[in-house]
Design a protein around this nucleic acid. Structure first.
Lengths: 186, 186
DNA sequence: AACTTTGTTCAAAATTAATTGAACAAAGAG
DNA sequence: CTCTTTGTTCAATTAATTTTGAACAAAGTT
């Protein structure tokens, strides 16, 4: 969704039977629009779809937990996108379901602890790739060890280097987790 | 390019006027194909195009520096892709031009020091985003400070949290650089 | 100068990813 | 039991990205 479209949607506030604006059509404040844009850019860098950034951003900058249909109305995205985006965010632990008394709908709130966000991203998005990479590397090692070509020495050197990279990558993830987990000092 | 297509291309080795296989049509060894695939997956995780992974992978697992037309022939990709991919890799510092005596073509070899690769990626791909994020955050701070809505307190709290995230992100990058820069122990 | 080699650029085509919306299921309300 | 609300799924559409290839430029060769 473009910024223009979002602003346009924000303008359209209908009045319901009781004469109050529909709760789910409360327009976004300027600051909310800006924060959502910030998250849209951030998730693009992480390789995630825009809708995921919009949803997380909206929840991050909303004072109350929101149900799916309100997210759909405020962002002007489809129910399908919202449902998939919320599932993704829930799986990552970036969003938490929370029940609201007297409301059957499931509400969601953003998890805002950096440590938790990073842990979820690492285990959900990074580790699977690291693991599949480890398998591939294992296979490559096999091939290298039985290689008898003119360049066997060179190949084995390169493969050793790949192993070294992977080892360091794993160490780095641990360092990152440790750093983000500690309480901030100075 | 699919694995199948690449294998097919590797099969087609023509014979030139002198009766030797054309230098640029030497087929890829199995181990080379596997390493290239490994890099294709790795660069996808980093959000880069497949061709970039293929080119870097080929150079990484090739004993000699290669010129553009050889890269095109071995990988079966277009000259355009190869040219753009090489420029990208050169800008990142992941690939180095090297001249070969008696050959007018510019040859390239992979830079394989993890520290250099990470430094190039950070300064070329991460820092620009961090900086644009910093600008956005500055703007958001302005808006938050002049906000007088019912939720002004909440908004300011969230904005403060964003500032905290950014500060930690910057620290993390430094830690990563320092870690990758040191010579491996134990 | 004319020709060849080498490499770049960029509009069009192909590919890949994200979004939509309608059909469906599950469960509460009346 | 029927109707409504809530949410999921997935095939079709739309959007974004990547690749191609032909035109071009720059520089070397004869």
């Amino acid at each position: 969704m473009t910024t223009e479209a979002r602003s346009a949607a924000a303008q359209r506030v209908s009045i319901n039977a009781e004469g109050f604006p529909d709760a789910k059509e409360v327009p976004l404040e300027t600051i909310q629009v800006e924060v959502i844009e910030l998250f849209v850019h951030a998730v693009r860098v992480l390789g995630l779809p825009k809708s995921v950034g919009e949803i997380y951003g909206l929840l991050f900058i909303s004072p109350e937990a929101l149900p799916l249909d309100v997210i759909v109305a405020r962002l002007g995205i489809s129910k399908g996108s919202a449902s998939q985006g919320l599932r993704f965010l829930r799986n990552l632990g970036a969003v938490q379901p929370s029940s609201v008394a007297g409301d059957r709908r499931e509400h969601f709130k953003a998890v805002t602890e950096l440590k938790k966000l990073a842990a979820g991203f690492i285990s959900g998005e990074i580790n699977p790739h690291l693991e599949s990479g480890t398998l591939r590397l294992e296979k490559i090692r096999q091939i290298a060890s039985s290689d008898t070509s003119q360049h066997a020495g060179f190949f084995r050197d390169r493969v050793a280097r790949l192993g070294n990279w992977r080892r360091r990558g794993g160490m780095l993830l641990k360092i990152v987790s440790r750093f983000l987990g500690r309480t901030t000092k100075k």
